[in-house]
Structures are given as C-alpha cells and as structure tokens.
C-alpha cells in the first residue's frame, strides 16, 4: 500500500524511531515474481482474399487478462500478516480512530498512567507532522513510535508493520495504534488490529455517526469523550448511541472524560476483558 495521499510523494513518510537510532526505513520494495521472458519473434502468413500478407511479429496480439482483484488486496494481505504476528505474541492491538481533537492522545496518556504498572503498553502514533503526540505518550510512560504521513490522511498496514518492527513489543502487552485524526479515510484501511475504537467528543455533535457511517460500521467500541462538558453543550448522548447502533447494532459504548477520569474505569475494564 502506498503511503501517500493527496499531492504528496512517498518521500514524505517518516517513521521516527524514538527508542533507538533514527533509522528512516521507508521500505517500499516489492518482491514481484517476474517469471521468465519469452521471445516471440516468429512470422505468420495470412491470406486475405487474393492478397497475401506476410507479417513478422515481435509481440503477440493483444489479450485480455481477467483479474477481479480487490484494489485493497495488498493492504489486506499485510494486515492479515500483522494480525497473525499480534495474535501469536498475544498482543492486544487496538486501532484508535477519530476526528482531530476528540481526545485520543489524552485518553491514551491517562490509560498508560493507570495501567502501565500492571501491563506493558506501546503506542504507534500517526500524524501528518510533528513528534508532539509521541512526546506526550513517552512522558506518560510508554514507548512510542511516531509515523508522520506527510500529506497522507491515514495509516496503512505497511506503515504499521514497519513501525511495529522498530518498537520491539513484548508479548502479552497492549499496542495502541493512534490513527491520523480523520473519520473518513482510515475506515478503509485494515491495519491488522484486533479491534477498532472510534472516539467522539460531546463537542462534535450527536449526528457524527450518520455523517461518517463507514467509520461507525467498521468500529467495535465507541468512546464518547469529554463528558465533563455535557452541561455546556447540546449533545444528546442517547441519540448518538441510537444513530450509531442503527448502523452497527453490535457496537459498544463507554462515556468517559479523560480530563476528570469519569468513566475511565469502565474503559480500563473493557481493555482487561479483551486481553
């Protein structure tokens, strides 16, 4: 899967290895089975009515190749490999998606502070630019790798594979993959995660599930964050849950405030139940 989106080129992708030396492995080499070459240099004689044509062909005539290949198949193949690696090592992998500013990083900071004594936590951070989020995560006490996607709007399975190799994740740990803040594009890209967690905040409007149905259909848990602001905004939590459940009847919900800690125990319990 290409790591770019919009006008960027692949040179913009940066994976910041914060544990070790800065090794920017952009590894996009593909191993293609090229088979072997054929020499089609031979001649044919065609008789068309009374006119005789002799034609030397260097190439055979056109042919149709039926493929029926899913365009995301390469990403899906890599995601499957990632999933296998995570499962084999009993690593709980969670893909956190949301629009920018919903509080994903704040939730992670509080989670790391609360749980890292009992369970090792690692974070892959995805942002277009800066190391700010990885800095925050490391200050909170978890090893982090920052992927800067340049102009790219989502993480893909190849980026996660590459970042995961640098993180040196211990078995029986939790790996959070904080996706680029965007409720549209990340919905299409399986990273190999065990579950997908969508975060929305009460300042965003209760109709978010209806506006971004793909993300809500593809997620397992919805964290409704910034509950401490509920008295000040017109946000109907029940309506949000109803909208999201109409798209995804199996979706679970936890209402939290990363700031005050309200509901965070339920989130920690949910995490422990997944391990």
């Amino acid at each position: 899967m290409c790591d770019t989106c919009g006008c960027g080129d692949s040179g913009e992708l940066k994976i910041h290895d914060r544990q070790h030396s800065h090794d920017h492995d952009h590894g996009h080499s593909h191993d293609h089975d090229h088979g072997h070459t054929h020499n089609h240099d031979h001649s044919h004689t065609h008789e068309h009515g009374s006119v005789l044509f002799t034609q030397a062909h260097n190439q055979p005539a056109s042919k149709v190749i039926n493929l029926n290949i899913d365009i995301l198949s390469d990403n899906n193949r890599l995601a499957k490999l990632n999933r296998k690696v995570f499962e084999d090592r009993k690593i709980l992998s969670l893909n956190l998606v949301s629009s920018p500013g919903s509080g994903k990083t704040s939730i992670l900071e509080k989670t790391i502070k609360a749980l890292s004594a009992s369970r090792k936590i690692y974070v892959i951070e995805g942002d277009q630019q800066t190391l700010l989020d990885a800095d925050r995560i490391e200050k909170a006490g978890a090893p982090a790798i920052q992927i800067n996607t340049g102009s790219g709007c989502h993480l893909d399975a190849r980026m996660v594979e590459s970042a995961f190799k640098k993180l040196d994740v211990e078995p029986n740990s939790i790996l959070f993959i904080e996706n680029v803040g965007n409720l549209v594009c990340p919905a299409m890209f399986d990273l190999g995660e065990y579950k997908r967690v969508v975060v929305i905040s009460v300042t965003e409007g209760e109709d978010k599930p209806l506006k971004y149905p793909y993300m809500f259909q593809s997620s397992n848990l919805c964290l409704i964050n910034k509950s401490d602001l509920l008295p000040y905004v017109d946000f109907n939590t029940d309506k949000t849950i109803e909208y999201a459940r109409s798209l995804n009847p199996k979706m679970e919900f936890i209402i939290v405030s990363a700031k005050t800690g309200e509901g965070m125990e339920l989130w920690f319990k949910w995490l422990e139940n997944q391990v």
Binding site: S62, K63, V64, I65, N66, L67, N68, I69, D70, I71, L72
Partner: peptide, 8 residues
C-alpha cells in the same frame, strides 16, 4: 472496488 481486467 476492484480491477476487473486488463487488455495487454
């Protein structure tokens, strides 16, 4: 969302 065929 798939590539159905190519003509080469």
């Amino acid at each position: 969302f798939r590539v159905v065929s190519l003509v080469v």
